[in-house]
């Protein structure tokens, strides 16, 4: 019996991504004066979208599902300019990313909290 819809799983993955992004942004801003430091970023590999379903022709095939396998990876940013000490952190970009990420995270937490409370409400039968 599947209690928790795909939306909740998607929200969970997004929250993990946002958490990781926050750590990376903090690290970038902390190292803004470190020579030869290359700015990092987080990539979100959502390798399975809900629109993509595997055509299971053999019963030994593993069916895709739109639930898990979204992984995040911390990689070095490409296509950035360096200053003369080899540092590639763009302070303004990082600060705006910080603000954006915070709003994104708050929105996700709000949504997942709302979904949980409505589930609880339904289970309690509106009492």
């Amino acid at each position: 019996m599947k209690l928790f819809s795909n939306t909740i799983t998607t929200l969970e993955n997004a929250i993990n991504y946002s958490n990781q992004k926050q750590k990376v942004i903090a690290q970038n801003i902390a190292n803004v004066d470190t020579p030869n430091y290359k700015a990092k970023t987080v990539t979100f590999k959502d390798s399975l979208s809900s629109a993509m379903n595997a055509n299971v022709t053999n019963n030994k095939h593993i069916p895709f599902s739109a639930t898990n396998n979204a992984s995040t990876a911390v990689v070095t940013k490409n296509g950035v300019t360096y200053n003369n000490s080899g540092n590639s952190v763009d302070m303004e970009k990082e600060m705006t990313d910080l603000a954006t990420n915070q709003i994104y995270y708050n929105a996700l937490i709000d949504r997942i909290s709302g979904k949980f409370s409505s589930l609880e409400n339904v289970i309690r039968g509106g009492k």
Partner: peptide, 13 residues
Amino acid sequence: SQVMIASQKASIT
């Protein structure tokens, strides 16, 4: 966030 979400799920289940 993982801890909070897991505890919520356990409670709802």
